[in-house]
Design a protein around this nucleic acid. Structure first.
Lengths: 217, 217
DNA sequence: GTCTATAGCAGGATAGAC
DNA sequence: GTCTATCCTGCTATAGAC
């Protein structure tokens, strides 16, 4: 193993462990000592490789979070393209599928959404990255897709609010695991996740509107 | 001012300032020194009145958060009862109204939802309180109300998922202020909040189902 | 590039005067 | 009940050996 390789591996391990810990406990609850211990390297490594704890946090987003978000979006795009027909229904289904099942392992998905949720609720410098490089282009793309299903001149704001509400629903079920488990009494196994995709699609598409017709509740 | 009164005021101030800071920055990012400085009292006061920082956090939920949640629920109940007719639509509207406008000041509402969101994403001991004393009874009540609008034997799980999704939407717009502002380009003034109530009601009731009919987007 | 050692400071908690 | 003073632990960051 050359020094460069060892360096790289250390740096990679630091990024991985840092991301897991930051996602789990939040920035302030995690110490550089915990991170370096988890990465099986020396305390000084964080400052050597990243300059500071703060910058390691940012680098987690640059080197891990943003690329993973891109993978998610690609998965969404392919899943959507593979549908028989294109409609708001298939958009909603593809979104739920990508975010709740998708290409990520359970652990990776949870990390991803937890970091996202933290930045949504309490934006730091990393929110800039998330907003400009991930949210904005993705939402823009979604809006363009959805716009073709609506009458012209229908109000951009309404479109945005509906997209945000779809996201809200998807995110919530990734984020509030424990509350959902507690209320529904179900663990997040494969069957329940499939059930959630079904539910979110249905809810996003028809909403509670079905209630009065006896279709949804 | 008698000693008892001074004591009480100090304790109250500590609870207030602690809640504001915990909501804003999260438990670990807030120091006892910050709290006592904000409450204009001595560093030792937290340990004297609450025993520990951890217990102060719990007491914030017991003495501030839970009672406020009850007020919110009462407001919801009265608002709902005052509607001309009762339907899923009025349930959704009352929920959005109570949580997004309701009886709380902007600051108080943000505090409330931030603390809630933190516990949802990363439950601590306080989640026990929130779940048992607030979420469970409220959701139970909502379920009973909504059940009367649905055909018998329609599946309790579906009902729960729909309720959770309604909450998800409402919570998101309180929680992700910055993202919402960034995407929509609108500040959270009275006009926008009213717009949000309208949107959430519509979305929860009809969901994106309206798209295909050109009604919602 | 990785280590040890340590500087320098902020954290929670407590003892004891008032 | 409230204060000051202090303990001790843990933190981030850095200097310097290897």
């Amino acid at each position: 193993m050359t020094p460069k390789e060892k360096h790289d591996f250390t740096k990679e391990r630091l990024l991985n462990e840092a991301e897991a810990l930051f996602a789990q406990k939040g920035y302030d609850a995690v110490s550089v000592r915990q991170i370096t211990a988890a990465a099986h390297c020396n305390l000084a490594a964080v400052n050597y490789h990243f300059g500071s704890k703060q910058n390691l946090y940012l680098e987690v987003f640059r080197a891990r979070w943003v690329p993973r978000a891109r993978r998610l979006q690609e998965y969404f795009g392919k899943f959507f393209a593979a549908q028989d027909s294109h409609s708001p229904t298939t958009v909603a289904k593809s979104l739920a599928e990508a975010f709740l099942i998708g290409p990520l392992s359970d652990e990776e998905r949870q990390r991803h959404h937890q970091l996202m949720a933290r930045e949504l609720g309490q934006p730091t410098e990393a929110f800039e990255l998330v907003a400009e490089q991930v949210m904005r282009p993705f939402i823009k793309g979604l809006a363009e897709t959805l716009r073709s299903f609506m009458p012209e001149g229908q109000g951009e704001e309404r479109l945005m609010l509906n997209i945000l509400s779809m996201f809200a629903t998807v995110l919530y079920f990734s984020f509030a695991h424990m509350a959902v488990t507690r209320i529904t009494g179900r663990e997040y196994d494969a069957a329940f996740k499939a059930r959630l995709v079904e539910h979110i699609t249905e809810f996003s598409v028809k909403g509670l509107g079905g209630i009065e017709k006896g279709a949804l509740l």
